[in-house]
Computed example of a mutant assay.
Amino acid sequence: MFRFPAPRAAVAAACAALALLAAGGAQAALFEDDDARRAILELRQRFEAQRVDAQRQLDELRTENAQLRGSLLQLQMQIETLKQEIARQTGANEQLTRDLAELQRRTRDLASGVDERMRRFEPSKVTVDGKEFIADPQESQTFEAALAVFRKGDFAAAQVAFADFIKRYPQSGFRPTALFWLGNSQYANRDYRGAITNFRELLATAPDHPRAPESLLSIANCQIELKDAAGARRTLDQLVKTYPQSEAAGAAKERMARLR
């Protein structure tokens, strides 16, 4: 016949079974906690690795940024230096352009001055008393200066000036005219014999000169002043015969009429 176990034995058996079950559950829970810890540690390690890597990348970026800023600063400084150099070169080029323009102006002025000085010394055509000839500027100026003195009425100075001109330029185309005004200066200074000598010199060297008829008339005037009436009549007669169409010939006829 079947018998139920005694209560104590049953309870003991039940407790043993419960203890065994509890121990098995604790062991299982313990295993689960270790896995969780390992997972957490792995996550932490992975996160730390990612953080370190991110920090490294950030540091690299900061370094690159600093280097880039330094490079940009250097580039800006180089650009500014280049701008200054360009400005300096531009200023230098502008100054060079101004200097070149000034040099060209001075060169033109110098060339013009040289041309002007050359023209002052270059012989040119001159027409005096209807006669055309070549004379250098200094020669012309000396003659005109002497004539200006005569026109001012300073006959003594004019006599000296014309005598000096003839001495300095013995072959000058001005010579016949200079002899004529020299004779007139001497006449005004009452040097009648000296005047006759120079008027005759004009007639001997340039008988076809426009002043030749006046020179004969002036000789007759000098002879009249010297009380040489016969000589004056001969000179006036020569004038009428040699230059019959001249104005001086008409004046000579009137003088001869008075001399008679």
Rank of each mutant, 00 (worst) to 15 (best):
E80W: 05
E80L: 08
E80V: 07
E80N: 04
E80T: 05
T81V: 11
T81W: 10
L82W: 12
L82H: 09
L82A: 11
L82M: 12
K83N: 14
K83R: 15
E85I: 02
E85Q: 03
E85V: 01
E85F: 01
I86S: 07
A87S: 03
A87N: 05
R88H: 02
R88A: 04
R88Y: 02
R88V: 00
Q89T: 11
Q89H: 12
G91K: 08
G91Q: 06
G91W: 06
G91C: 05
G91E: 07
A92R: 06
A92T: 03
A92N: 04
N93Q: 12
N93G: 08
N93H: 11
N93D: 09
N93V: 10
N93S: 10
E94P: 02
E94H: 09
E94S: 10
E94R: 10
E94Y: 07
E94F: 05
E94N: 11
Q95Y: 03
L96C: 08
L96Y: 09
L96A: 13
T97W: 05
R98Q: 01
R98W: 01
R98K: 00
D99N: 00
D99V: 00
D99P: 00
D99S: 01
D99K: 01
L100G: 00
L100A: 00
L100C: 00
A101R: 07
A101L: 03
A101T: 01
A101E: 07
A101I: 02
E102R: 14
E102L: 06
L103N: 13
L103S: 12
Q104L: 05
Q104I: 02
Q104H: 09
R105P: 03
R105K: 06
R105S: 08
R105I: 03
R106E: 08
R106M: 07
T107R: 14
T107P: 09
T107L: 15
T107F: 15
R108K: 09
R108C: 07
R108W: 10
D109T: 07
D109G: 09
L110D: 10
L110M: 14
A111L: 13
A111P: 05
A111W: 13
A111N: 13
S112T: 15
V114H: 04
V114T: 04
V114L: 03
D115S: 13
D115F: 10
D115A: 13
E116A: 15
E116H: 15
E116D: 15
E116L: 15
R117A: 14
M118H: 12
M118W: 11
M118G: 06
